[in-house]
Write a protein that binds this DNA or RNA. Structure first.
Length: 295
DNA sequence: CTCGATCCCTGGACGC
DNA sequence: TGCGTCCAGGGATCGA
């Protein structure tokens, strides 16, 4: 599941592999995850991929004007979200297409940039000019670029649960379920704790641990749980360093207490019940929900 | 503002 | 071996 470190890995791979390459033609399969498939078909051919960057969990492929005079002053880009199972990688034209290949961009070097996504939870959109800025300004700060003061203030002025805040892309961009749980465990904060209840020291600890974990995960090319592959088709290595994610019933690396899983903010949340103390009222709430699901 | 529920989608795990 | 069922999860959206 591509989060910030995985998307960063893909962006760096694409920058190395396809920056400078021209898109000669485009072939589409299923298009229900594309904002406007027809615009993609008319706008992409003839443009060169200038630069690839990560923005939160998005990939931004900046494009040349491709001699399209009407837009020669406009910035243009292909926005790609990998969703749960998306992959974007260059492959030789001669190589057979993987199942669930939905977008194929023929490049000028004998390869195709292919988008593969079994579940199609991803998103793709061609954006130009002001639409790029409008799209990007919806999101919060990048956790690796945000200052401590900014991060701390944003978290502590909110009454939502810290797990929900970390997952909310308008709060910080790029964090998903794995890195939220990992950083909360490292900072010894329960996922159901309210943002507003965090002490300044806790917010600082969380900020530091989140950055450290993201940086280490980037260095190891992200986590491959089931099927994540980067732009070169390689899996990441950070899953070997997971301390709580996916470890229900296994012993905490710090105190040996069995790791638990609860639903917070609608997502599986793994935590150590000893290291990460539950907020007041939470245990009662979980019991109630078990007795009366949905109530 | 915050919450839960629902939908999208496929593949993997599991039970029989 | 094969079938049916459940569930995972990022994000949008909607009603409470």
């Amino acid at each position: 599941m591509p989060e910030l470190p995985e998307v960063d890995t893909v962006a760096r791979g694409l920058q190395r592999e396809v920056a400078g390459r021209k898109i000669l033609s485009l072939t589409l399969g299923e298009t229900d995850f594309i904002d406007d498939p027809e615009t993609l078909e008319t706008e992409l051919p003839g443009r060169t991929i200038l630069r690839v960057e990560r923005y939160g969990k998005f990939l931004l492929l900046h494009l040349s004007d491709g001699g399209k005079a009407a837009e020669s002053h406009k910035e243009t880009a292909l926005l790609v979200h990998l969703g749960m199972t998306g992959m974007l990688m260059p492959r030789p034209v001669s190589e057979a297409q993987a199942k669930h290949t939905h977008v194929v961009m023929l490049l000028d070097d004998g390869r195709e940039l292919r988008y593969i996504d079994p579940r199609r939870f991803g998103r793709m959109a061609y954006l130009a000019g002001e639409a790029i800025r409008a799209e990007l300004k919806r999101f919060g700060a990048d956790p690796l670029e945000a200052g401590l003061a900014e991060f701390s203030q944003t978290i502590r002025e909110r009454r939502a649960r810290i797990k929900a805040l970390l997952l909310d892309q308008t709060v910080v961009r790029g964090v998903g379920n794995i890195y939220a749980d990992e950083s909360l465990w490292k900072a010894k904060i329960h996922p159901a704790q309210l943002g507003a209840r965090l002490k300044a020291e806790q917010a600082k600890k969380l900020y530091r641990e989140l950055q450290g974990i993201l940086q280490k995960a980037i260095a190891l090319r992200g986590s491959s749980i089931s099927d994540f592959l980067d732009a070169e088709g390689l899996p990441g290595e950070y899953q070997r360093h997971h301390r709580v994610y996916g470890r229900e019933g296994k012993r905490c690396f710090r105190c040996k207490t069995p790791i638990r899983r609860v639903i917070v903010a609608g997502r599986s949340s793994y935590y150590c019940p000893t290291c990460q103390r539950a907020p007041r009222g939470w245990k009662r709430r979980v019991k109630q929900r078990r007795r009366n699901p949905g109530g």
